[in-house]
């Protein structure tokens, strides 16, 4: 992916660049809002990573102007401000996701992957498929092979999110935010238990597991 990172903290900028380059992304970094906006407009990027507080042009303002001038590359905000209000502001300004510093490299990668995928076609999908696992979004049914699987509504949403991000790592925080819409952290890993329930339903009676745990990062659904 072609990624533009706009971050004034040089240490943080090179940290982000390093993490993403290691995964094979090509990353350009700039350190202030004005040149960030100029570069974002002059070149096609697959993803923008924007710090909230930037010299010369605030991150919010930058994204707002970028969107107004027709820029549609997905945008991930980075910020030391973790309040829900700040998060909402960021999303209102045209951001697609919001990540609070400090973050684990795996968290950044997972979110970048999720956003990069969303940048593609937005045609309405009615059937999601991962290997022999198939989800019908209209009928709200799930089957693996020929066997139909009965899921609770929340399990259905959890699986849907995993299938939409198939092949990529999703973190516990992402699941909590996107599936449960919670912006706080339960301390014990309540999410893990839901995953293992889901795993029990979609993987237990089959030879090849689809739902994998990625140590220190999260989960990945992969055929």
């Amino acid at each position: 992916m072609n990624i533009l990172a706009i971050e004034d903290d040089l240490e943080m900028a090179s940290f982000v660049q390093r993490i993403l380059s290691d995964e094979g992304h090509s990353v350009e970094t700039v350190h202030d809002g004005d040149s960030g906006l100029a570069l974002a407009r002059s070149k096609e990027f697959d993803l923008l990573i924007v710090d909230r507080m930037l010299p010369r042009k605030d991150g919010l303002e930058l994204v707002r102007e970028f969107r107004e001038s027709g820029g549609n590359a997905p945008t991930l905000f980075l910020s030391a401000l973790s309040d829900v209000d700040h998060r909402v502001e960021g999303l209102k300004a045209g951001g697609d996701d919001y990540l609070t510093k400090p973050f684990a490299p795996s968290e950044l990668l997972a979110r970048v992957d999720a956003l990069g995928r969303r940048g593609g076609t937005e045609a309405p999908i009615t059937i999601l498929k991962v290997g022999d696992l198939e989800m019908n979004l209209l009928a709200r049914t799930v089957k693996r092979g020929e066997e139909s699987i009965d899921l609770q509504p929340r399990e259905f949403r959890l699986l849907e999110f995993l299938m939409r991000n198939a092949g990529q790592v999703v973190t516990r925080t992402m699941l909590l935010e996107k599936v449960w819409d919670y912006h706080f952290d339960p301390q014990t890993n309540v999410i893990d238990v839901h995953i293992s329930r889901l795993r029990g339903k979609i993987d237990k009676d089959f030879d090849r597991p689809l739902l994998h745990t990625v140590r220190g990062a999260g989960y990945r659904l992969q055929a």
Partner: peptide, 19 residues
Amino acid sequence: GDPSLLGQAMANLLDNAMK
């Protein structure tokens, strides 16, 4: 109230009880 904070409060109580 603030839904996130109330959720956090409930989660903390449940976490504690479980622990």
